[in-house]
């Protein structure tokens, strides 16, 4: 056996993968440009109605927020909205998922029917609930009157506006958490539960010590998913109340929208969105880690 010395070959350059992904990439890069622009605008004094005043003011827009009670109101409302919706949806979603855990024909049918609110466009869902809470003929207005509550103004009163939009959000998005947790519950190994049942372990103990810990990755993924969406809420609040009454529901994106179109203050609007972006960026990094873990796991099971 003779080993002939052969020179090492130059590697063929792999062009194909770039050719395949380039079109998708180009389309997206076109959309990345505005993002950079937004970051730049947020450092400007820039009002569409006063183009002459346009000028670079570094972090002036951000500094102004620090002492702006309206800004802090936006932060407060956004966080409150996010906490309430995700909290309620998580508890309800988990409850319903456990109710439907057993693979029976009825449970499967119910879980499919519960997808319908989730597949309704949130903006249209907001309109539906607006009709249902109409003071003249809304079925919900009628029902609360029957229960003896008069003068309940739903989204038109500052006292109940938050409650109303949270209710719509819960109606639309609880099925999202439910369906993810249901898939999680059904994929859990059976043995620990059978062993616990044989040993006569109390159900509450099974829930807190076995079910919840094993379900945690799914709960975290579903919650982060919802957190990311909820902090950016627009589709329900804007069609329903345009952020009102007053400033009751001025969450980040609604306020940024109004700053842009109503007050034509591009600088302030984009600065507000940059702050929101920073929050979602941090959350999405957390999310992607969780999501990847779960994805690996799903692929392992398949």
């Amino acid at each position: 056996m003779t080993d002939i010395a052969v020179p090492a070959r130059r590697r063929r350059v792999q062009l194909l993968p770039y050719l395949l992904s380039l079109p998708a990439l180009l389309v997206c890069i076109g959309i990345l440009v505005p993002f950079v622009t937004a970051a730049y605008y947020s450092l400007l004094r820039f009002r569409l109605n006063m183009p002459a005043m346009k000028g670079f003011i570094w972090f002036g827009n951000y500094q102004a927020f620090l002492t702006d009670s309206e800004f802090w109101n936006t932060v407060r409302v956004s966080l409150l909205y996010t906490a309430l919706t995700v909290g309620v949806e998580l508890v309800l979603g988990l409850g319903i998922a456990m109710l439907l855990q057993k693979q029976t024909r009825l449970n499967n049918l119910v879980s499919i029917l519960l997808l319908l609110p989730l597949m309704t466009a949130p903006a249209l869902a907001a309109l539906m609930w607006k009709l249902m809470t109409n003071p003249n003929f809304g079925v919900l207005s009628y029902l609360v009157q029957l229960m003896g509550v008069h003068d309940f103004k739903w989204a038109s009163s500052p006292n109940s506006a938050l409650f109303t939009v949270v209710l719509v959000d819960v109606w639309v998005y609880t099925p999202f958490i439910m369906i993810l947790l249901l898939a999680g519950l059904r994929s859990l190994p059976k043995q620990p539960f059978e062993a616990a049942a044989l040993d006569g372990v109390p159900r509450r103990f099974v829930f807190f010590r076995i079910t919840l810990p094993m379900l945690t990755p799914y709960i975290i993924t579903a919650s982060l998913f919802r957190l990311l969406d909820s902090i950016q809420q627009f589709d329900i609040i804007y069609p329903m109340t345009q952020g009102g009454p007053g400033n009751t529901l001025l969450v980040f994106q609604v306020r940024a929208y109004l700053e842009f179109y109503q007050y034509t203050n591009v600088g302030r609007s984009t600065a507000l969105l940059m702050i929101l972006w920073a929050i979602t960026y941090a959350l999405s990094n957390l999310f992607i880690k969780q999501w990847l873990k779960l994805r690996e796991r799903a692929r392992g099971l398949a």
């Binding site: 052969v6 090492a8 070959r9 590697r11 063929r12």
Partner: peptide, 13 residues
Amino acid sequence: RLIAGVEELDAGA
């Protein structure tokens, strides 16, 4: 796989 051509060799022929 090298002979079939679905992997690339570092050196040789």
